[in-house]
Amino acid sequence: MNQFSYMRVTSKESAIAALAKDKAAMFLAGGTNLVDLMKSGVTSPERLVDINNVPLATIEETKTGLRIGALAKNTAVAENALVIKHFPLLSQALKAGASPQLRNMATVGGNMMQRTRCHYFYDSALPCNKRSPGSGCGAIGGFTRMHAIFGASDKCIAVHPSDMCVALTALDAVITVTGPKGERKIPFGDFHRLPGDTPEQDNNLQRGELIIAVDIPFNQLAAHTHYLKVRDRASYAFALVSVGAAMQIRGGNIADVRLAMGGVAHKPWRLKEAEAWLKEKSATEENFRKAASMAMANAKSQGGNAFKLTLAPNTIVEALKTAAAQA
């Protein structure tokens, strides 16, 4: 680990100012990802700007939905009564992630910003374009069991590891960020990027910008919701594939539906075509299966992750079946 200095800020303004002043400074929230990255030498900030005392941890109802502060802890969000009532998918997704200890520290902003768990990214003895642009992708042709089946490039096949983000992308959340140039809003689906030729860039947050909140618009999807995470052990493991499914069902027909996947791409993977096709169809396994195969249209295996071409559609069907079966 490199030597670094540490400071605490108590307002958005001072947080932004601290980063504007110092090119090698980074925000520290729960630290559950950043500190690990520092320990393994992937990230070497010279200054940590601790934002935990910035008052951005509230979860409140607005006219149009829920607003969740960027510093709300993952546990606080998962256990929040409003979240459980309106957006059970988000609560389920959060609880499927990491461990209670980690969730007690991890924040909403930090969760969105967490970096891939690709081993080649973490081990500085191995090549990785994300860590060290131009060094090559170590994963391609190597251990690819955990890697992307959608949207990968020849520079990077890593996946975004978050569960929470799968739910937020499905729920059409909107992110508010602020920075030296003022506030702006980013639809959740536009926040994370595909790797393309610049895998070093995970998302579209500009340097120096601070995430302040996430807004989730109300919907009618709470009754039929399921987050299904398939992993190598029963808890405390990243997704091989995960699916967030939420439906509004009227008289056996799907009035509205949201579907997103985790563990399959460089960003949380929304299945818009499958959603569009499912709308107004009856909620049957046969239809779920058709939607799932539609969702897989552009899937591509890297070798070690070929099983995901079967697992992903199966998981979509299972998640939809379980969601539909809810009373």
């Binding site: 080649y120 191995l126 190597g142 052990r233 029963a234 808890s235 405390y236 493991a237």
Partner: peptide
Amino acid sequence: GIIDHRFGRFVNNNLADYHVPVSAD
């Protein structure tokens, strides 16, 4: 324990990726 034989190096040498059973298992 998984080794990438091109490098002769482990690619899951930590307790997040080497899966010891947890209570739920």
